[in-house]
Simulated assay, not measured.
Amino acid sequence: MRTDIFARLDREPEPPKIEAPRMSRHRIALFGGTLAFYVAIVWAVLITSWLVALDWKVMLFRPYQQWPELHAFLDYYVVLGQRGPTAVMVACWLGWRSWRQHTLRPLLVLGTSLLLLNVTVGAVKLGLGRLGPHYATQIGSAEMFAGGDIFPSGHTANAVVTWGILAYLATTPRARRYLSAVSATVSLGVGLTTVYIGTHWLSDVLLGWAAGLLILLALPWFEPLIARAEMWIFAMRERGWERWRERRGGARPASVPGGGPQPVLLPQSMATDGPAAEAVATAAPGPVLPAGHAGTALRARAHTGHPARPGGMPVAPAGVRRPPPHNDRGPRAGSPARPMTGG
């Protein structure tokens, strides 16, 4: 009994085409509300409002000193928000799904979301330049435009996007509900863990949640681009396979060099000056030769690459001068030698 799992999977029927999510009114409303929350958090920090005072209270409370027994576990748990390890784990799972579903869409969606995450979150981080709690210089200050890169929280936004992709790509409503709950729990825990350790302000985590959710909600707008990219990749793969097959199949038969017309051969029984020969000569693209000259015509064609004259003499190409006669060849028999002149 054969137990090759890959052979069994290859025999499975191709799954039905999975419909990509569309930008519905409900999703647009969620996107608008999340964007308003994002702008409100940024504005509250810029004007040093009550949110900044709450940041300082939580920071001075020092949660890692209040519950030190959780520190060892949370140091490992926060890795679920690091971009490198989480991207590798999720990419492996989505790669398996791409192979099973015969589509590149899961991997392309993951790549698009990570690209949007790096561009949007990275630009806001560098533009606002907020310092983290460990590098704060003045109590009660928002620590903005000081050369930092802490606002919004990259760990939190990455956890929302990376684990939320699993729910976004779910194929059934039940799986989507379960994966949404799992991704929300993981991203919520990662954000609070960064506050516990002291690497982020509470407002950093709030803005990280909003930044990641905005990317997930905006993904349907990029679905047409993802579909075109998938078609282009498959087309390039087919071209590559065709070139590889051509190379593996060996060299093609060498075509006859030159682009001139091919000579037409007549059988020995047909005279070259009869009415039938005149009709053939009128319709033929090349010179008409008797069948007895077939070997001579083909040899002349192969050596020169140009059509052959009747009688086996090749036609010299245009613009090529014939070589001068050899000086060591004597005069022809029956003809007097030419007198030497000029001396």
Rank of each mutant, 00 (worst) to 15 (best):
T3S: 06
L9A: 02
L9D: 01
E12Q: 04
E14H: 04
P15K: 05
A20L: 14
P21V: 06
M23N: 07
S24V: 09
S24Q: 02
H26V: 15
H26T: 05
H26G: 11
R27N: 00
T34G: 03
T34Y: 05
T34D: 00
V45R: 09
T48Q: 12
S49W: 07
L51V: 08
A53Y: 07
K57H: 08
V58F: 11
F61W: 03
W67G: 00
P68C: 07
E69G: 03
E69C: 00
H71G: 01
Y77Q: 05
G81S: 08
G81R: 08
Q82R: 02
R83N: 11
G84M: 14
P85N: 11
A87G: 07
A91D: 10
L94W: 07
L94Q: 12
Q101H: 12
H102D: 06
L104F: 06
R105Y: 12
P106R: 06
S113F: 02
L114W: 07
L114S: 14
L115G: 15
N118W: 14
T120P: 06
A123W: 15
K125H: 12
L126S: 13
G132E: 01
Y135N: 05
F145Y: 14
A146D: 09
S153C: 08
G154L: 11
T156V: 10
A157R: 04
A157Y: 07
N158H: 03
G164S: 00
G164V: 01
I165V: 15
L166Q: 09
L166A: 05
L166C: 04
A167N: 08
T171M: 02
A175Q: 10
A175L: 14
A175W: 11
V182N: 01
S183M: 01
V186A: 10
T193N: 00
T193R: 00
V205S: 10
G212K: 07
L214P: 01
L216R: 09
L217F: 04
P220V: 11
A227Q: 03
A229L: 03
A229C: 06
E230Y: 08
E230K: 04
M231T: 13
W232I: 05
M236E: 10
R237Y: 00
E242M: 06
E242T: 13
W244E: 15
W244I: 14
R252I: 00
P253W: 10
S255T: 14
G259K: 12
G260Q: 15
P261V: 06
Q262T: 14
L265Y: 10
L265W: 12
L266K: 00
Q268V: 04
S269C: 00
M270Y: 03
A277E: 03
A283I: 12
P287Q: 05
H293V: 04
A294R: 01
T296K: 13
R301G: 13
A302I: 11
G305A: 10
P307S: 11
V315G: 07
A316K: 07
A316T: 04
P317M: 13
A318Q: 03
G319N: 08
P323A: 15
H326C: 08
G330K: 09
A333G: 02
S335I: 14
P336N: 02
R338N: 02
M340R: 06
G343Q: 12
